[in-house]
Design a protein around this nucleic acid. Structure first.
Lengths: 118, 118
DNA sequence: CAGCATCCCGGCAGATACTG
DNA sequence: CAGTATCTGCCGGGATGCTG
């Protein structure tokens, strides 16, 4: 098992905290096909406010997962791109997504069962 | 790509929400080696309060990931065990942990770099 | 266009004390 | 032993409005 010293190890927490935010994984995933600008990202994602998108990008940048390129001038042009490190995180994200597609209905069924019998 | 319709799909969110809680994944992981009782789990995990452990177990049970067996009598004996569904979720959890072990130091280095230059 | 400044709210999680 | 009952603080995230 690769992660046997899991419980006490803070390093594992690191990855979970990265994926624990509502939007981190979504933005990372949306960026997988190349640089996008702020507005493009908002469109592609849908349902995220401008403020929250900026916060998320700042967080990802802080953790070395996203690279921010500001081309100066007016109007402002800012592009965001995955770093190589950020790109490696797409693997776990995809694994989670795959699990959801395989077992999502089982979870929902369990939820309804549990709700039903109070 | 298995999860191309990721952004709009609520099913993917399901899995992320499951792993977004601070303790869900930890408790799931702690349960991977068979049934444990409330007190045993607390010991094995460390740093979790009784109340929060109960809440977490209730949540996991609600989602069909954990099975709760109460053997009546005094003193009370309650054991928790992974369901087959819960066991499948160990795979993504392990993937995340493996990523953390492989790239955790890169993230920490990036954080220090970002903190350093203000 | 990109993004800060505010205000606000709900829910996770910790600490503490109590019960069958 | 395995919980429940409170009280509390914190932070993510939404809404709105303003700026260079």
């Amino acid at each position: 098992m690769t992660t046997d010293a899991f419980l006490a190890d803070c390093r594992a927490r690191l990855a979970f905290d990265l994926l624990s935010n509502t939007w981190n994984a979504v933005v990372l995933w949306a960026l997988r096909e190349g640089p996008y600008r702020h507005g493009e990202l908002r469109e592609r994602i849908g349902g995220i406010s401008s403020k929250v998108l900026t916060e998320t990008l700042r967080r990802l940048e802080f953790n070395g997962l996203v690279d921010r390129q500001a081309h100066p001038g007016a109007p402002p042009r800012v592009a965001y791109e995955l770093t190589p490190l950020g790109r490696t995180l797409l693997v776990p994200i995809d694994t989670i997504g795959a699990w959801a597609f395989a077992h999502g209905d089982e979870v929902m069924a369990a939820q309804e069962r549990a709700s039903g019998l109070q």
